[in-house]
Design a binder for these strands. Sequence first.
DNA 1: GGGCAGCGATACCGCCCCGGTATCGGCCCA
DNA 2: TGGGCCGATACCGGGGCGGTATCGCTGCCC
Lengths: 304, 304
Amino acid sequence: METRELRYFIAVAEELHFGRAAERLGIAQPPLSRAIQQLERRLGVALLDRNSRAVTLTEAGSVLLREGQAALDAVDAADRRTRRAALATTGHPGLVLVTKAGASGDLLPKLLDAYAAEPGAVAVDVLLCGPGEQERLLRDGRADVALLHRPFDSTTGFDTEELCTEEQVVILPAGHPLTSRAHLRMADVTALPGLPMPRWPGPDGTYPDGPGPQVRDQAQLLQLIALGRASAVLPESCRAHLRGDLATVPVLDAPTVTTVIAWPPHSRSRALAGLVRAATGAATRVTGPSSGATVLGTGRGTDR
Amino acid sequence: METRELRYFIAVAEELHFGRAAERLGIAQPPLSRAIQQLERRLGVALLDRNSRAVTLTEAGSVLLREGQAALDAVDAADRRTRRAALATTGHPGLVLVTKAGASGDLLPKLLDAYAAEPGAVAVDVLLCGPGEQERLLRDGRADVALLHRPFDSTTGFDTEELCTEEQVVILPAGHPLTSRAHLRMADVTALPGLPMPRWPGPDGTYPDGPGPQVRDQAQLLQLIALGRASAVLPESCRAHLRGDLATVPVLDAPTVTTVIAWPPHSRSRALAGLVRAATGAATRVTGPSSGATVLGTGRGTDR
DNA sequence: GGGCAGCGATACCGCCCCGGTATCGGCCCA
DNA sequence: TGGGCCGATACCGGGGCGGTATCGCTGCCC
């Protein structure tokens, strides 16, 4: 199976329309029809049902859609990481680290400084993105390593190393009555009158229905809170860079947030290994030597 | 980048010899040379150093070797799983479960029975393989789901669900002096005179240097132990089907073995989800409802 | 109900690219 | 210095890819 065939099939499977898929691919419709037929013939599998007037996926077709997307991501990753590895010897962007905008406020600079101080360190580009986008970037090679936050981000499919854990606090407008309290519970803050929790976009970029303002990043969120239009529960480290018109109160029963460093399990480059080592070192220095940073490697036993 | 180019490059990168790589690929050498040159030109990256008389990988080349192998595995997986999905509607092998030969003696039949009893269950093929092979099979689509045993198997890159945990025992020839002991420690069994631990093949199929007989599977191992040529530490569940000429003694400080069910994180087919559900159910019934089987899903939070 | 529009399939054609054979050029070794 | 090994180059033939033109089918609408 060639990647060209996969790209073609995925375009048709997503559009469910040969004409639009061909346009998206920048080719004419007849070669696309023929390519899909060839793919089906070579696989010996019907991928699409063409009851004229409607194209639908068969069971096998939806399997190929999911698996093919993963495969194309892997091919893209190979391309991008190879290019980056070549540039790293002469130019700059040796590694790309991705994290959510606004998160890990003080950990990230410490981590970067610690790695930069290592011998043989390469330049690290930092990529900031919205929630839920990191996994995709890591999978298709636009990033090499990510800072993820359990339990909000899924870490499945990646190697991870824990860096630190923290409690969460609720962010409120300065002067809000609840800011006088020493601590709160989730039940106190989930349905604050006039201060709904915001809505974040899903993986497809659309917003779920419901109350609360739509936000894309943390800056938007904080501004809305300062305006008295929303509230939010965030890891306590966000207090370090908070604006003066906001206040925080610990939330006792909010889930603990664990920051982990994550990377694709097969790509154990020298540069990446160094960054991970620097990260765990920096984290132990932040949180104290006895917490954070699990050291147990991922080595296979010599046994069964 | 086309999969043909990737296959060609990987062949050359592994052989480090254009002639042999071409032979392995079933083509002549000149088209192969040209294809690699085109690939390098299109990427704008030198992948190989040809100091006549020796071909070596550049830094970028070794990145492409690793990433390309992962990408080709993903493409192969897409191919195989699509074919299997199509056959499942009419024919037999709906899911392929892989586990190490000899392991999970009583859990596996319970799991299969529990799943077969579910409505809409598809046929499950069971594939037995040697240690360390399961991850590869899962990655390239020859299997859909695996039973892995931490800490021996690496679970990185997969979604997992814990099924059960067990202590380990040492397997000795019946009549060995130590069999009279109620329990032992690792220090007692690592260097038994005349009964060395066996050597298992590495990922590349070769055996590490050192003492001890070479074994490929559990049957070979048990026969060697019965002959008084080896000893081994295995999970206690292996006692269920042990031959009469072998004896076991618990090893108190051997690492606890956790059996997990693992699958590629992106392939959440209906059939697979059913099998995982049946597996966790069967495991809770085996180990008691309060242990085993973590229920916490991998869902992304709506928050960041 | 017949014309029409939309959509995928088919037919045919030209060109590029892949793979093959023959050969060259450099290097090590005898 | 000649021979052998190995990768690169030159050149050729065929298959496949992509393009245009057209067909066949099916709802829809006047």
